[in-house]
């Protein structure tokens, strides 16, 4: 009995030592750069198969993606995807998804594409790959109409500047704080709440983007008369349609269709329909 106990203890110790040794001396992982495994849409599906794309979008980003009272999806990006789907005869399944986890949902296959005003950034490109850019915008510092201070004065006032949490505007606020400006960041859930904070005086200024603000103010002229864009911040950013890196065929098809759509008169019609032109 005692011998058996020693054998079992010896085996456990051996396994632990062996495991550690194996872990320490494991070989370097094989390079996975540009060698993505075959995915759902890497190659063209056979002609008798109905292509079904699960389209993930943020239902909280008008005018690009939002929902109608009957729960159906609507917006500029929805129209773009519908146009592409009609061209190829694809079936689209619309899936509203929380913005904070939408990239993971794409990577893990819950959805096949994201077209929801998604900015093409270097960090996102490490996980997902984008189509050609289809819309560009800039960040703006927005204040109340009676504000007379300069950009530097507002950013050094120690007062609140509101941004949407997790947005590229939020990234800009962090950058400005790191570069030495002295203001307090007020992080809110949506651009609508951010704008509300400016209007009711909780924030002295807001950082937002022209993709949201332009169409929103054209739709709400009463609000447009109460605020003004003080200045733009940083370079222009662009939106793209996100796909999994391995879905080469799907991305190429989207790129082809996007190019055709953007060169057609329908593109201007869509931009005007959603107050995105000008």
């Amino acid at each position: 009995m005692k011998k058996l106990r020693y054998v079992i203890i010896g085996l456990i110790i051996g396994l632990i030592i062996g495991g550690f040794t194996g872990y320490i001396y494991r070989g370097a992982p094989e390079s996975t750069e540009y060698s993505y495994p075959k995915g759902k849409f890497t190659y063209p599906p056979s002609s008798d198969i109905q292509v079904t794309i699960v389209y993930g979008f943020d239902p909280e980003y008008p005018p690009f993606t939002q929902v109608l009272p009957n729960g159906s999806a609507t917006g500029f990006d929805i129209d773009v995807i519908n146009w592409i789907a009609k061209k190829y005869g694809w079936k689209i399944i619309y899936k509203p998804w929380d913005w904070s986890t939408i990239v993971d949902a794409l990577v893990r296959g819950d959805i096949d594409i994201i077209a929801s005003g998604m900015t093409i950034t270097a960090s996102r490109c490490e996980k997902i790959w984008f189509s050609i850019p289809y819309y560009s915008y800039v960040h703006e510092l927005v204040v109340r109409i009676n504000e007379n201070r300069s950009f530097d004065n507002i950013l050094n006032s120690g007062e609140y500047i509101a941004v949407q949490i997790g947005s590229t505007a939020d990234e800009w606020a962090e950058r400005l704080l790191k570069s030495g400006y002295k203001f307090k960041k007020l992080g809110l859930n949506s651009y609508v709440e951010v704008l509300d904070a400016l209007l009711d005086g909780r924030a002295s200024a807001i950082i937002t983007d022209s993709a949201f603000l332009g169409p929103y103010l054209r739709k709400n002229p009463d609000i447009a008369s109460k605020i003004k864009v003080l200045t733009t911040i940083g370079p222009p950013y662009t939106y793209g349609i996100a796909t999994r890196p391995e879905d080469t065929w799907l991305r190429n098809m989207i790129n082809k269709a996007l190019e055709e759509l953007m060169n057609s008169p329908e593109w201007d019609v869509l931009l005007r329909k959603w107050n995105l032109s000008g």
Binding site: P59, E60, V67, N189, K219
Partner: peptide, 8 residues
């Protein structure tokens, strides 16, 4: 939340 954003 979705309606709040859709309606402003």
């Amino acid at each position: 939340r979705i309606v709040s954003i859709a309606t402003g």
